[in-house]
Amino acid sequence: MQPDAQTTERTDDTILRLLTEALARKLGEAGIPAAGIGEETDLLDLGVIDSQGLLDVILEVEESGGRTFDPLRIDFETGITLGKLAGAFA
């Protein structure tokens, strides 16, 4: 059975919130305020998130959100945003 659109949207919102919180914690540890980082901000442009930092955020959300990250659903070549990451959680 396909999930209805409203349920999917709610779940995506939850994942986005978890991603935002995980990123804010990551940035907080590095002494960088997370205010102003939106769904479309390219995380690599922040200059403080490397592959390890990205992995930390993804794994944390996989654990807390109970959903699996599917990297084949994200196009890394066009930049990495919270919105795109959220869309890659199956």
């Binding site: 592959s51 390890q52 196009d75 070549e77 066009t78 990495i80």
Partner: peptide
């Protein structure tokens, strides 16, 4: 590869049928 794909250039390597890979193990 574009900057975003540099950390995981799987699709880039496949699409361009690259023959030489060189990276850090990370």
């Amino acid at each position: 590869p574009p900057e975003g794909a540099r950390m995981a250039p799987r699709e880039f390597v496949r699409r361009n049928a690259l023959t030489f890979w060189f990276s850090v193990p990370s």
